[in-house]
Simulated assay, not measured.
Amino acid sequence: MSTKWEQELDLMRQSRREQIMNAAYELVLENGLISITIVDIVKKAEISRVTLYKYYSSIHEIVFDIQIRILNEMSDLLGEKLKGKNGLEKLHDYFATFVRMYQTRPDYFRFAAMFDQFYQSSYPTPELEERYQSFTKQGIDLIEHIIEEGRVDGSIRAETNPPMMAQILSHIMMGTTQRIAARNEIYKTESKVDSEEMLNYLADFLTTSLAAAPSQA
């Protein structure tokens, strides 16, 4: 059992990490990933470079921690809201929660879009790659489980391939939401369709397209 001092030390360390991540997060949203430096982060966080290096050895580690924190929050929220009675209803709950996240946390998707673009061809280290992929796998596994549940209970088309469809649905929802979030101001002027309405329509369309025919249910 840890002592009170050790618990306080852990809280202090976590608070400092959060301070560094929050500073980097704001800088990325303001200037993009390619532009920020360690010097920028320590100035924004109001700490010394020595202090920062006690917690992180590179910008990559900070950025990956931010992205994983975002994915964790998304995963927690999505998991809590799946109240549907069958697989299809849970899938619709998943999409609806995804849309609500865009409404309340659009900058999460802006950050994720910049992250995906910056690391589009490779990961900085095998360790970061393994850690990050373990989190993304959780999201895919959740969708795959919902689809399989729907196939079993008869609410989702029996011929649906859960692993394949989980990947497709994840890319469609995340990719569309990221693009809208990243270009939101321009999108308002170049489109006659409201972005939130479009995401809700997409969620309904994807759900309906996977619904089993009445004779199968």
Rank of each mutant, 00 (worst) to 15 (best):
M1Q: 12
K4G: 06
Q7V: 09
E8D: 15
D10I: 06
L11K: 15
M12F: 15
S15D: 12
E18Y: 03
E18S: 04
Q19F: 03
Q19R: 08
I20W: 07
I20E: 04
I20D: 02
M21N: 01
N22F: 04
N22H: 10
N22P: 05
A24F: 02
Y25D: 00
E26F: 06
E26D: 13
V28W: 00
N31C: 14
N31R: 15
L33D: 08
S35N: 13
I36R: 03
I36G: 03
I36Y: 07
I36E: 03
T37P: 08
T37H: 08
I38G: 09
I38K: 09
D40C: 07
I41F: 11
I41R: 05
K44I: 00
A45T: 00
A45W: 00
S48E: 07
R49I: 00
R49Q: 00
Y55F: 12
S58Y: 04
I59P: 02
H60W: 06
I62A: 04
V63F: 08
V63H: 05
D65F: 01
Q67D: 05
I68K: 06
I70S: 01
L71M: 13
N72Q: 13
N72E: 10
N72W: 14
N72Y: 10
E73P: 06
E73I: 02
S75N: 05
L77V: 02
L78E: 00
L82A: 10
K85Q: 11
G87H: 08
G87E: 03
G87C: 10
L88Q: 07
E89H: 10
K90F: 02
K90I: 00
H92W: 05
D93Y: 02
F95A: 04
T97N: 03
Q103W: 12
Y108W: 15
M114H: 11
M114D: 10
F115T: 01
D116L: 13
Q117T: 10
Q117E: 15
F118G: 02
Q120D: 09
P124W: 09
T125K: 09
T125V: 10
E129D: 15
E130R: 13
Y132P: 02
Y132E: 06
F135H: 11
Q138D: 01
L142S: 01
I146R: 04
E148K: 14
E149S: 13
E149C: 09
V152G: 09
G154A: 08
R157K: 15
E159Q: 14
T160A: 13
P162F: 10
Q167K: 15
Q167D: 10
S170E: 07
S170G: 07
I172E: 06
M173K: 02
M173D: 00
T176F: 12
T177H: 13
Q178F: 07
Q178L: 03
R183A: 10
R183V: 02
N184A: 13
N184P: 04
N184W: 14
E185H: 15
Y187M: 11
K188E: 13
T189E: 14
E190V: 12
S191I: 08
V193M: 15
D194T: 09
E196R: 12
M198T: 05
L202R: 09
L202H: 07
L206E: 07
T208K: 14
A211H: 07
P214Y: 14
S215D: 14
S215R: 14
Q216F: 14
